[in-house]
Design a protein around this nucleic acid. Structure first.
Lengths: 110, 110
DNA sequence: TAGATACTTAGCCAAGGTGCTAAATATTGC
DNA sequence: GCAATATTTAGCACCTTGGCTAAGTATCTA
């Protein structure tokens, strides 16, 4: 997957307010899918799909532990995915601390 | 318009790759609608609507000069609109240079 | 193996987004 | 006022998205 597609996927994922809230909630540490679903008024399957979109965009990771599937924020991926764009459009206002996205050494996962 | 709605509008606007490219193009200085349209393979009316979305999100400003309507990047608005979210989710990776978004004194335009 | 729990996948539907062409509006210049 | 130019608005078609319920898969417990 190219860097540009990463960027597109990340921005599409961030377009939905529920998904943005999930990312904010995960800031406090990993959460099981059910724990996430319990924080919203929508059904568990809908949350599951949102989590799928976030995972597809590389913004979260999942880890199975017995019955439960824990989701965790992939902060670095979020920053690298949208970092190129932000640096291109408003470099004076927003600064990236880790500019790995520029080094060209990208991790390549499925 | 509330700050949260600003944020939602900005992220929805950024979801489309054409609109992101328009913002990048405007980084080089203001451009007339027709000049922007000429850079894309899609029709002028479609570009016009994209510009309307960007303007609605407060990410660009428009200025009429005779026949032409020039669009300019509103960099500070972009930074403030998405800044709160970025600071909430990945504060270690991304730093805001101007944290006006925290002062609560938001400019209110139509 | 059977049942309970946790989560996802499948299928449906309403709503919204994005593209197009044609028509309307605004401005310039003769 | 009329024609030309620049841009937007209107109306339509198509696809995607996001919600739901029902059904399927995976894991634990007994």
């Amino acid at each position: 997957m190219t860097e540009a597609q990463d960027e597109a996927g990340a921005f599409r994922a961030l377009a939905d307010p529920t998904r943005r809230q999930i990312l904010e909630d995960l800031r406090g540490g990993e959460l099981a899918a059910g724990e996430i679903a319990a924080r919203f008024a929508i059904s568990a399957p809908s949350i599951s799909r949102h989590l799928g979109v976030l995972k597809g965009a590389g913004l979260v990771t999942e880890r199975r532990e017995g019955n439960r599937i824990y989701y965790a924020l992939a902060e670095d991926r979020l920053a690298t995915s949208i970092g190129r764009f932000l640096s291109a459009v408003c470099p004076e206002q927003i600064v990236l601390r880790h500019t790995k996205w520029r080094s060209g050494a990208q991790s390549e996962e499925s």
